[in-house]
Design a protein around this nucleic acid. Sequence first.
DNA 1: AGACGATCATTTGATGTCAAACAATGTGAC
DNA 2: GTCACATTGTTTGACATCAAATGATCGTCT
Lengths: 173, 173
Amino acid sequence: MSNNVTTTEKGPARSRAATRSAATPPAGEIGLGMLPELIGYHVRLAQMAVFADFERSLGTLDLSPGLFGLLVIIEANPGLRQIQLAAAARLDRSTLVPALDKLEARGLVERRAAPDDRRSNGLFLTRPGAGLLQRAKAIVRDHEQRIAGALSAEERAVLVRCLDRLAPEVRES
Amino acid sequence: MSNNVTTTEKGPARSRAATRSAATPPAGEIGLGMLPELIGYHVRLAQMAVFADFERSLGTLDLSPGLFGLLVIIEANPGLRQIQLAAAARLDRSTLVPALDKLEARGLVERRAAPDDRRSNGLFLTRPGAGLLQRAKAIVRDHEQRIAGALSAEERAVLVRCLDRLAPEVRES
DNA sequence: AGACGATCATTTGATGTCAAACAATGTGAC
DNA sequence: GTCACATTGTTTGACATCAAATGATCGTCT
């Protein structure tokens, strides 16, 4: 079965093939059209490269960039509610549930019933969680130097400032 | 309610809470710890903001940023093989399959059996696909102006050059 | 020619994400 | 006080993505 698709058409589509020679890239290279003119394209490539290195670095601790971010925010705000953590981490609150389940199952985070509101949980790092986070932070600082090593301190500052000014309409933070 | 924070801890967590005052956010605000010091954090926020605007802009044409990119690359390289498109778009070839299924179902793209290799398909824009892409490109140019409107041409160039120099070790392109 | 490994598209499974629906709880209007 | 509505965490469903396995085909080596 396999080929569901087009396959054996021979008819009208043929004419389009003629245009091909005109737009064909120089040789074995693949053209990207207007994509390199778009800032979002470069942002996406940078994001993928940075995250790949981030993930590889923290792999030894079995932490993803997302989980690391959650630990950092919880450490900075002990007792945080899930909905607040979701907002701070830019995640949907439903996305947070399995992530916290994982962290809690590993004994890194605790959900304690909030005293004033029985709907919500207060989030806390356990002692092992705090310890792991310290090691993770050191690794992340190394990672930061590695990925931004080609940029001077001033260039990094300029980069961050430009990034923060992108798409101001869409940012609610 | 709001202030989750310090307040009602009594147990062992208290010691940690002590260190907290140093890093405590001003008031009802939620602290982010070291995250804002990380370039990857700002890249991620920028990516989310840019893609949100991108998606909103192209929503009228029912195109996602990813599908738009595929159309652009196919237009620039008629007859491209799926594996080549996957590499150019930085997608796994298995991810490409449902995406092309969608584009083909909408009559925007054609998979034609390659003449020289019966394993692979040549990808082509249909006439409606090319027409839709032209409209999408115009929308994307508007989007580009909107998201980068706060940056001068020179700043944009600097931004892109800095982005492209991030994580050089991980980039194979 | 035949056989073995490589390559291409696809299928399947696992994961991360959002959105909608839900139950429990809180808040405000009356 | 009671009832309607809002909020919190969770469950479920849809979707994008990667990775591994599969079937068909290609290339090569002998």
